[in-house]
Design a protein around this nucleic acid. Structure first.
Lengths: 208, 208
DNA sequence: GGCCGCTTCCCCTTTTTGGGGGACCGCGCC
DNA sequence: GGCGCGGTCCCCCAAAAAGGGGAAGCGGCC
């Protein structure tokens, strides 16, 4: 008989940690070896407990789940990261997969689905439920924003005018307008307000 | 010795339900008598199990936690509703309290805090952690939007132009501009993009 | 009755934004 | 070298939005 699958749970909500642990604890082949509530805690727990699978929330203190995933995948190539989150923005999904996550499931999943997902991930497989895969496909159809366009759409979401953006970035306002036109085309919108909303809806920009 | 406090958990995420139940189940004076994942389920569970305290998420299928709270408070005046959610928008808090919730806590809370909150609510008290109370106070300083202004800010968030809004509402675009000016003043912003962002940030309008 | 808030519409003006074109530079890539 | 892309800036122009004022009808409320 093989050894039990060692699991680390990373989430800043105690209720979620308890819930996930309970959902997995009923299965004898799993062993929840540690829990963490932020990025530094997750990394030190990986160091100390050497889990096989990490259940990772995206919005955690200390840098976010994507950064944590990246760090874990770089240092311990054999560890698998399964994102377990409530965020269903296509950009979040895309970034998580890019960072090396082996799967991306939403917190609405059932106990049986979670158990199956952990097994699949531990076996080297990928887990992308249909609704997540659909969003990821949608993300594929969108052109990547250039670094400058990303800065500008962030400032748009902060409610800045073209002149303010130009001053912030130290460029002319005609350049801002040029970037904006490209941005509108890439996002498929007609004005700055729609651009701001779309950026939020897709997770390109996060509020707060 | 008094009877145990009967608790209903309403949340569409199995992991959260399991977690909250586990956090409360360790206390002998509590009894989780039922769980529900949507509004109709919550109401029928109240009917059947007559809980003392309902732990309620805000974003649940079938109408939302605010509607469910309102319905519960109207039919069973003795039941207490404690909102347990991740949403920290001041408008959400305000609406929940208006609907008759006895408390509003965020999912980041610890097991001990949850236990204390349930006891307080069951005893007829109110539970508003400092960060929640601060947001509620912030909401108080904001003027209420009129029904028309609410419709318009929703359309702004949908990216509609003044002309489109006028056509949608069957009024002239000069009237839309008048409403917009009042809206900008009430929200303390200078243009429609900022208005859209502020409306989302405060929970006045929800995306999707 | 008088006041206030909401809604509607009108006038005026200025500023901002969006839509098109073109141009130059630097960089990486084939 | 040539090509594309990203970034910068420029022109012109039309449309939209914003900022200011006033005004009227309507309802509720004191």
């Amino acid at each position: 008989m093989s050894k039990r699958i060692r699991i680390l749970i990373v989430d800043d909500h105690p209720a979620i940690r308890v819930g996930l642990a309970a959902m997995l604890g009923s299965q004898p082949q799993f062993s929840v070896v540690a829990e963490a509530g932020d990025v530094p805690g997750a990394l030190s727990a990986c160091e100390e407990h050497q889990p096989d699978v990490v259940l990772m929330d995206l919005r955690i203190p200390g840098g976010g789940g994507v950064d944590a995933t990246l760090a874990i995948r770089q240092r311990w190539q054999t560890m698998r990261v399964l994102i377990v989150t409530t965020f269903d923005r296509d950009e979040d999904i895309h970034r998580a997969i890019q960072a090396g996550a082996s799967g991306y499931v939403l917190k609405g999943l059932t106990s049986a689905d979670l158990v199956a997902a952990v097994k699949t991930v531990h076996g080297g497989g990928k887990v992308l439920p249909p609704e997540v895969a659909t969003l990821l496909a949608e993300r594929m159809t969108r052109k990547n924003l250039s670094p400058r366009e990303l800065e500008i759409v962030r400032l748009i979401v902060q409610g800045r005018s073209n002149k303010e953006i130009a001053a912030d970035l130290g460029i002319g306002d005609e350049s801002v307008k040029t970037h904006l036109r490209a941005l509108f085309t890439k996002l498929g919108v007609a004005d700055r307000t729609q651009a701001a909303i779309e950026a939020i809806r897709h997770g390109i920009v996060h509020l707060e």
